[in-house]
C-alpha cells in the first residue's frame, strides 16, 4: 500500500518535471496569418493556369486534366481560336475552365496530364470561402495575371504596357 503511494508520487513528479521543462522552451506555434511558414517548393495547393511569355494562354482546352482527375472536379469547354479572338497558340482554347476545390484532392494528376504545362498546382492554400459556390474557381481566377513589361508614369497616370501589344490604362 505504502509502496504504491510512493511510486505514484514519483510518477506525478516526473510528469510535472516534463511540464516544467517545456514551460521554459520557446513556443512552436506560428502566429498565422501574421507569421507565415514557408511551404516546400513542391507543395501542391491551388491551381494556376499559366501563360506563355507573349501572354497567350498555355491551355489548349484538351480536357486531359479533366480526364486524369480522380474526383472529376475539372470542367473544360473548348472553343476555336479566331483571328479576332486569339487566346492560345494553335486552333483550340478553353472557353470555360472551372475547378471545384471542394472536390479537389490536390493530387496533381491534372498537372501531370497537361501536355502544355498549362495547369500547375502552386502554393496558395488559403481556400476558405463564404459559400460553396465560391469554391468553384473559374478561368479568370485561375489564369495567372498578364505581367506587364514595364510601367510608364506620366501625368499622374499609370500606363501598363503588356508584353504582347497595345497600351492599357
Amino acid at each position: 500500500m505504502l509502496r504504491e503511494v510512493w511510486s505514484g508520487s514519483i510518477e506525478i513528479l516526473r510528469a510535472m518535471w516534463i511540464t516544467l521543462k517545456h514551460f521554459f522552451r520557446p513556443p512552436v506555434t506560428n502566429q498565422y496569418p501574421d507569421d507565415r511558414v514557408p511551404v516546400y517548393p513542391r507543395f501542391r495547393a491551388r491551381h494556376v493556369l499559366k501563360r506563355y511569355e507573349n501572354g497567350l494562354e498555355r491551355c489548349i482546352g484538351c480536357s486531359l486534366c479533366a480526364a486524369a482527375c480522380p474526383t472529376d472536379c475539372i470542367l473544360v469547354i473548348a472553343a476555336e481560336n479566331t483571328e479576332e479572338n486569339r487566346r492560345s497558340p494553335g486552333e483550340r482554347y478553353a472557353e470555360v475552365y472551372e475547378i471545384n476545390l471542394l472536390r479537389c484532392i490536390f493530387c496533381g494528376y491534372c498537372a501531370e496530364a497537361c501536355p502544355t504545362e498549362a495547369i500547375v498546382l502552386e502554393h496558395d492554400f488559403e481556400l476558405s470561402t463564404h459559400n460553396r459556390w465560391d469554391a468553384i474557381i473559374t478561368q479568370e481566377e485561375l489564369l495567372e495575371p498578364h505581367e506587364p513589361d514595364y510601367i510608364l508614369i506620366r501625368d499622374d497616370q499609370v500606363w501598363v504596357e503588356p508584353k504582347w501589344g497595345h497600351l492599357t490604362k
Binding site: 484538351c62 480536357s63 479533366a66 480526364a67 473548348a78 472553343a79 476555336e80 486552333e91 483550340r92
Partner: peptide
C-alpha cells in the same frame, strides 16, 4: 462537333 467535347466525355 468541332472542339465541342472529347470522345470520352
Amino acid at each position: 462537333f468541332r472542339f465541342h467535347a472529347r470522345a470520352w466525355e
